[in-house]
Amino acid sequence: MKTCKIFTLVFAVVICTMTSCFRPDGTATDDTGNKLIGYWELVHILEETQRYDIYENGEAGTPYFNTNSYDIACNDGRKEWCIVRFTESTMSIVATDDPELVAIIDLPVPYTFDGKKLVSAFINLDFSESFAEVKFRNENSMEFYILDEGDIYNEESGKPEAHEKYQSWTTYRRVTNKN
């Protein structure tokens, strides 16, 4: 009986300690002021690609640079124009001129935004951690910065054969034509 009592006491202490250790914060608080909420139209893209080959001896080849900067408009032939909607917790494509995106129009996808980093299934990078840095120029204009950098490996040898760095700055304008 005495052993049982001691066991009970020890067990109660262990459980209390365990639960207090893992006690979660409770609720999250929104101290960022989510300026994303609303409708945004993609209007401009600036992208920069750097790439160089990596030789077998480990030396880097001559770097290759490519920069593109262009405005986006509906049906301009690029199939990149879209209107994106942000609610409090999800983002979705509301309108697009790309026929391949028809299946995901109005599909709400959860996102998280801490005031700087935007994480969503729509942002899917090959090498780096998948997120976009958001900068608000003013109330009605914002820019997404994406950096994707890493080595490309040879499938047979498993050794790096090239290094690639891709950066893009996409500008969105707030759509205000809603009732």
């Binding site: 049906n75 509301v94 309108a95 697009t96 026929p99 391949e100 129009i105 109005d106 034509n177």
Partner: peptide
């Protein structure tokens, strides 16, 4: 909500087979 701007597919190209349905 009460959004009245452009919505859906607004491109001029024909949709792929199956009208783009997944």
């Amino acid at each position: 909500d009460s959004y009245t701007g452009p919505s859906g597919y607004v491109g001029t190209e024909p949709l792929p087979d199956g009208d783009g349905e997944a």
